[in-house]
Amino acid sequence: MTTRIVELRRGVLKKNDLLAAELRQRFQQAGLLVVNLVSSPGTGKTAFLQKTLRELLARGRKVAALVGDLETENDARRLAESGAPVRQINTHGICHLEAEMVAKHLEQWNLDDFEFLFIENVGNLVCPSSYDLGEDLRAALLSVTEGEDKPLKYPTMFNSADVAVITKMDIAVACEFDREMARRHLGEIRPEIRIFESSAKTGLGLEEWLDYLVSERAARRGVSAIPDLLSK
């Protein structure tokens, strides 16, 4: 009997990472910009995404969305009101989305038909941080009702985000929300994070967010930033 050391240097969570890498390649080949939206439950992901889909469609963009929840098709129904194709992922107890679930729910779509794919994750600021879905951008949302120190409480998630969206700005005054403090905390946990302040209700911040998405797609996919079709 001999004892030996075997060097491995092999990442764990391998299966998800491999699937996510495959998805990433497929998304790139299809010219798709993919955004993974994460937040606590109740932050307003669905309302914000519904507005995003509606406005991008109004600009003549081709968009689709996947939404994850433990149960119900409610969010898919709400998002579909925008006019975009939407599919619901029911995890039946799993607290985050994984690459395999995303791949499975994309099966019936031709990715070349779309320019933007939004994935609304399960409301949870802990578990989704570990699961790559093949996205280009991870957008972490936090609302004015949640406290300015939210990023400090969930550093792993906010540190993994590319973009932060502050939601429900229409009630910021009522909540005595300190936007400078929130922005400072976001910058501490994730230096140089791009921050958008928004209200799905009033439309505040939507134009800026859409312009950002369009320019990100142009930069990452090497497509020209054709002037958007603006409709009234």
Binding site: M1, R4, V6, L8, R9, G11, P191, I193
Partner: peptide
């Protein structure tokens, strides 16, 4: 401030100590 992370997100098996029978 810096977002240029060189280490910190690792979750990997570095090595195994195994017994090889004759």
């Amino acid at each position: 401030p810096s977002f240029d992370l060189r280490q910190g997100r690792e979750l990997e098996i570095e090595s195994l100590e195994i017994e090889v029978g004759d």
